[in-house]
Amino acid sequence: MSGLREGTVARIGRQAGPAEGDRTWSADPYSHALRTGQGPLFLRRADGWLLPLDVERWCAEADGVDLEVLRRCEGAVLDVGCGPGRLVAALGRQGRRVLGVDVSAVAVDRTRRLGGPALRRSVFERLPGEGRWGTVLLIDGNVGIGGDVAALLDRMAQLLAPGGLLVVETVPELDLDERVRVHVTDARGATGVTFPWARLGTPALLRYAERAGWCAVEQWTAGGRSFTALRLQSPSDASHTGRSPATQSV
């Protein structure tokens, strides 16, 4: 379905090319938190506002909410910003073809130690299987990568096979569209470099998606988290408006 040959994902997962912007998520304190599997860890804006990062959940096994996401995946799966690899590992245990991509060397190493294929690379660099992935995941706030949602959605369109599925996690219960510069910090006072980031609620994601030609095919909430599944509209689909995507709570 995906057009990826058997064995391709495992082989490319062992590559270790350089990553653009690797200082953002590779420098301490993010790397330190992933090595220990513990926070506290935060994104900090210039005005001092702190967004807690759920390191313990990221470093644990996939939970029931994660498995609901993975149940919806189709074909070969690309996990963008895979972090320490819980989703990649879970898909691998299910016998699915999957690749994790992350700019953090520590994240990629941890994913590989869990038995999952992972590649250290920015999503905006050339990636294996472009235009042939059945599903791409933007989970755990990764819709914020690069701080430019429109550019990121355009990139997702390049990665997916025709009719492929994009699953995005959004900020729950908020119509939020925030583009800021942040850095990672922890309770020790260690800080990383500043980089652009975005935070989106579902309504804002749907506005960006509609402008870029995506159609929401499902929305759901589970465990206090919110998700939207998108597909690029075909020319025939674009003429049909007024269809409401399925929405459910788990």
Rank of each mutant, 00 (worst) to 15 (best):
L200A: 06
G131Y: 08
V167E: 01
V123H: 10
R132H: 12
R44L: 05
G100Q: 04
D66K: 08
R231F: 11
L4V: 09
S249R: 15
E74I: 02
A190F: 07
G75Y: 02
V136L: 15
H240P: 04
Q158V: 13
G192R: 00
T185F: 04
R45C: 12
V184D: 08
V180Q: 10
T202V: 13
D54A: 11
L41M: 13
R72L: 13
L166N: 09
R44W: 02
R243K: 10
V9K: 03
P18A: 12
L160D: 08
T135I: 06
R120N: 06
S226V: 05
L4I: 15
R179Q: 14
G37K: 04
G224W: 14
D54S: 11
G48V: 06
A76H: 01
R93W: 06
G39K: 02
D22Q: 14
A150F: 08
L87Q: 06
L70W: 04
H240D: 11
R110W: 04
Q15I: 12
R72N: 06
T228M: 04
A222I: 10
S2I: 08
A212E: 15
T241W: 13
T111W: 01
A62G: 00
W197C: 03
I145K: 03
H240Y: 13
L127R: 12
T135M: 02
D47L: 10
E210P: 01
C82F: 02
G147I: 09
R126P: 12
P235Y: 10
F227V: 08
P162S: 07
T8L: 15
S244D: 10
A89D: 04
W197H: 14
V98E: 03
N142T: 14
G3M: 10
S122D: 15
D79G: 03
L91E: 01
R112F: 04
E61I: 00
R110G: 05
A90H: 01
V55C: 00
R71G: 09
L67V: 03
P40K: 03
A19D: 08
D237C: 13
E61G: 09
A118V: 11
H240A: 14
T170F: 03
V136H: 01
